[in-house]
Amino acid sequence: MFAVSTMFGMAVASLALVPVFLALFTDLISGLGIAFIGVAMAIFLAGIGSSVGVGVAGEAAAGVVAEEPERFGRVLLLQALPGTQGVYGFIAGFLALQQINAIGAAMTIAQGRLFLFACAPVAIACLVSGVYQGRVSVAAMQIVAKKPEESGKALILPALVEFYAVLGLLGTILLLQAIG
């Protein structure tokens, strides 16, 4: 199940864990620094998920359009679906950043860790769901290719994966509220 692209994503993600561990178990980084790591992870891990998903879905879209150019509109929608994860990550990062700015340089290491944990749900859920939504989009495009009259059903299948990205975003928002 691991494509080169997925493996690349995982490799980047694990690289990101180095400063996280550094931040969690040493006092080398300030509270503000730890919180920033959380924000950055929310944005770039979700971005990786979306890039992989939109990328593979785009390839499939091109395959359909190469033979049937008039189906461009239908496949465009399917390609766009895995793109939302990146947006969710950005929204979560933006919300966290507003709270972080309110505390400013006074942030303790303990507070910084809370922000880091609060950003984790959206980052991880969007990374994984973006990749898998891309896969389902590819399969759904094959429905558009083979039975264009069933395009509506084809849209529902990848949309279900979206749910878990939304839950990740909600989780992050709730945690941020809990920090207060």
Binding site: F2, A3, S5, T6, A60, A62, G63, Q142, A145, K146
Partner: peptide, 18 residues
């Protein structure tokens, strides 16, 4: 091998199958 590189080709094949 998870077949991501086949996304374009398989989609095209599905049209050709029709």
């Amino acid at each position: 091998r998870d077949g991501f590189e086949y996304a374009f080709f398989v989609a095209r094949i599905r049209v050709l199958e029709t």
